[in-house]
Computed example of a mutant assay.
Amino acid sequence: MTFIRFILTTVIAAFLFWGCGPSQSVQRVDPASQSDLSGNWNDTDARMVAEDMTSDILSAAWLQNEESPVLIVGDIRNNTTEHIRTDIFIKEIERAIVNSQKVEIVADPDQRAQIRAERDDQQQHASYESAASLAQELGADYMLIGGIEANVDKNLDGTRAAKFYTVNLELINVESNRKAWIGNKKIKKMIERNKVKW
């Protein structure tokens, strides 16, 4: 009898525990809306960087004397302590540049590996007429490289902090190593919390 009472008590307690758990609600919002939950890098920061960098790179002097230059995206390094997906804003930059039709962009190294594997496979398995030709890749004239840096300055009790990000992108001539364009975007956030760990 005691054992059965113990089992019943345990089951009832488990149901009460699960029933009193945290509730959750989900709401769809406009992807362009600003949301700063932690003060860390987020989608709004990525969008701001993409918009400013794209506008700058397409209106800068380097492009005035070029006719359909070919660009490849190299390493964009995250030099912060945060987990930042640089590919999110880089893909936005690529999209805007390709759609401008002022600059051509070729596949990055990871994409090229997949495409080359497909091209090699076609040499063996596709008809002669439909197989993609070898050694016909478009060479890049410029490579886009850069990085993200961050700095946090906080007060002594840890309740206020200023977080500063700077994103630097550089366009380098592949043949001459000449830097044709340098873009910079700065973002600064003020964060206030009751108790905080940085």
Rank of each mutant, 00 (worst) to 15 (best):
W62M: 02
W62E: 01
L63I: 01
L63Q: 00
Q64T: 05
Q64G: 01
Q64V: 03
N65P: 02
E67C: 03
V70P: 04
V70L: 00
V73T: 07
V73A: 07
D75L: 15
D75F: 14
I76N: 06
R77C: 07
R77H: 09
N79G: 02
T80C: 05
T80Q: 00
T81M: 12
E82M: 07
E82S: 05
H83F: 15
H83P: 09
I84A: 01
I84K: 05
T86N: 11
T86M: 13
D87F: 08
D87G: 09
D87S: 12
I88Y: 15
I88F: 14
I88Q: 12
I88R: 13
F89H: 05
F89D: 00
F89P: 01
K91A: 12
K91Q: 14
K91E: 14
E92G: 12
E92M: 15
I93A: 02
I93M: 06
I93T: 02
E94M: 12
E94S: 13
E94T: 11
E94N: 10
R95P: 09
R95F: 09
R95Y: 08
A96S: 09
I97Q: 01
V98D: 03
V98I: 11
N99L: 08
N99M: 08
S100R: 03
S100M: 03
S100L: 00
S100F: 06
Q101Y: 00
Q101K: 07
K102R: 08
V103N: 00
E104K: 13
E104P: 08
E104R: 13
E104L: 13
I105N: 02
V106E: 02
V106R: 03
V106M: 04
A107V: 12
A107N: 13
A107C: 11
A107I: 10
D108G: 14
P109V: 09
P109M: 09
D110C: 13
Q111M: 15
Q111V: 15
Q111Y: 11
Q111F: 14
R112T: 11
R112Q: 15
R112P: 05
R112G: 06
A113K: 15
Q114A: 14
Q114Y: 15
I115E: 07
R116K: 14
R116E: 11
A117C: 05
A117D: 09
A117Q: 13
A117W: 12
E118Q: 12
R119L: 07
D120W: 06
D120P: 05
D120C: 08
D121G: 11
